[in-house]
């Protein structure tokens, strides 16, 4: 556990100006997409998603967390996340158009990464050994927020990678004592239900079992994962 927090401290101490820069870019692009969504802003946001995934892959895991066991696995995983966004960039799959139904949820999720350092401070931790918005789970939460706020048509590959990351984060809450990741878990499980249910509802082809039964299964799985987290944590 010590090496886990020490690597976070080293990362924060060495990269905090860059982290602020990346957060500023994210904020500007989000505001532009929110107020004046245009093609270049959508492309720029996808490029940002690729860049931030590669940042986590090579700067965080490749350099600062390289002392941890199997950190190269995480580098490869975040490269796959970047690949999912590059695929989206090439195929123009996700529209990044605002959807009215879940916008408030999206706004909350977009702001949640900023709560990470606050929780760390409330736990009595001090900079640089705190969770920041440019740690992998906070970045995943920001991506999830973007998908939720602009969910007219979403990048499902990126979404399921985020779901997988959330499962890793849920285990880290227990195994590495990082309760900040509860934010990601709490955001991801309802998102999992919403996005998959939307996908089922959007499919107009007649399938079996019924839409209600499939939605119930998705809800059951989300609840089961949440229950696993609560049981193990408590």
């Amino acid at each position: 556990m010590d090496i886990f927090w020490n690597t976070i401290a080293d990362y924060n101490a060495a990269t905090w100006p860059y982290q602020i820069g990346l957060m500023a870019v994210a904020a500007i692009l989000t505001v532009i997409l929110w107020l004046r969504p245009c093609t270049w802003a959508k492309v720029a946001m996808k490029i940002y998603m690729v860049a931030v995934s590669l940042w986590i892959a090579f700067v965080y895991y490749g350099q600062f967390a390289s002392g941890r066991d199997y950190s190269s696995v995480m580098t490869i995983f975040w490269c796959m996340m970047a690949a999912a966004w590059i695929y989206d960039l090439v195929t123009h799959f996700s529209s990044f158009q605002k959807s009215g139904r879940y916008r408030p949820w999206g706004v909350i999720m977009l702001l949640l990464p900023l709560v990470y350092p606050l929780i760390s401070v409330l736990r009595g931790m001090e900079f640089p050994m705190i969770a920041t918005p440019m740690l992998p789970s906070a970045v995943a939460l920001y991506m999830l927020g973007m998908l939720m706020a602009f969910n007219n048509r979403i990048n499902f590959f990126a979404f399921i990678f985020i779901v997988h990351w959330s499962i890793i984060a849920i285990s880290k809450i227990v195994l590495f004592d990082i309760p900040e990741d509860i934010l990601l878990a709490a955001a991801c499980l309802p998102s999992m239900f919403i996005f998959f249910k939307e996908a089922v509802d959007a499919d107009k082809t007649e399938h079996k079992p019924s839409v209600k039964a499939v939605s119930a299964l998705i809800l059951l799985v989300a609840v089961l994962i949440g229950a696993c987290m609560v049981i193990e944590y408590v």
Partner: peptide, 11 residues
């Protein structure tokens, strides 16, 4: 007859 829902199969 209708086919299985792909999301159902996925889960």
């Amino acid at each position: 007859k209708p086919k299985m829902n792909p999301v159902f199969v996925l889960f």
